[in-house]
Amino acid sequence: MKIWVDADACPVVIKDIICKAANRTQTTTIFVANHSISIPPSRYISFLQVGQGFDVADNEIVNRLTPGDLVITSDIPFADEVITKGGHALSSRGELFTAENIKPKLNMRDFMESMRSSGIQTGGPTAMSQADRQAFANHLDRKLTQSTK
């Protein structure tokens, strides 16, 4: 299993958790973004810079993804593509997207998008909490443990 990170919007604290876990478990991890990001020196961690444009990083990950790989993203339509291709998707807030929960999440996302486009203020996401960080670290740990069995 490889870890693919949709790094364009990945919070720094989550990036740090991913890097520590990648080194600890010796898991190949690739951060993909359309702008330069810093990553720690490691034989397990790399960075792939893609061109500018809508969903360019997402498309690159989907093209390189193999079944069983883990993708870190909070982009629900992208998570749906990952699951369809046989991968696993985990949000930066520690929510594991599955075949069972992704369609209702897509429907809710589309509903909220239509509310916003009609002028209704829906508010943004809450600030990332310690509980979110812990949930992310726990789910990541479980996925990495499962992949080594």
Rank of each mutant, 00 (worst) to 15 (best):
I76P: 04
H88F: 14
P104W: 08
S129D: 02
T145H: 09
L48R: 14
P125Y: 05
S46D: 05
Q146C: 13
F54G: 12
Q134V: 03
V12P: 01
A137T: 04
L96E: 11
G123W: 00
R142L: 15
P40Q: 02
D8T: 09
D141Y: 10
I72N: 02
A131K: 15
I3A: 01
G86L: 09
D16W: 09
M112I: 13
N59I: 10
I39E: 00
F97A: 12
S114R: 13
P104K: 06
G53A: 06
A33E: 04
G123C: 01
I102G: 07
I3Q: 02
S38L: 10
E81T: 14
I76V: 14
G123E: 00
S36E: 15
R133M: 10
F111W: 06
F136S: 03
S92H: 14
L106Y: 06
Q49E: 07
R43P: 13
D55N: 11
H35A: 12
G94P: 07
F97G: 12
F31R: 03
D8H: 04
G86P: 05
S91P: 12
P77L: 08
I72R: 04
I120L: 13
L90V: 08
I37V: 01
L65H: 05
R93A: 03
I72D: 04
P125K: 13
I39G: 01
D55W: 02
L96Q: 11
F97T: 10
D58T: 08
I18E: 00
W4R: 01
D55Q: 12
R109W: 05
A9Q: 05
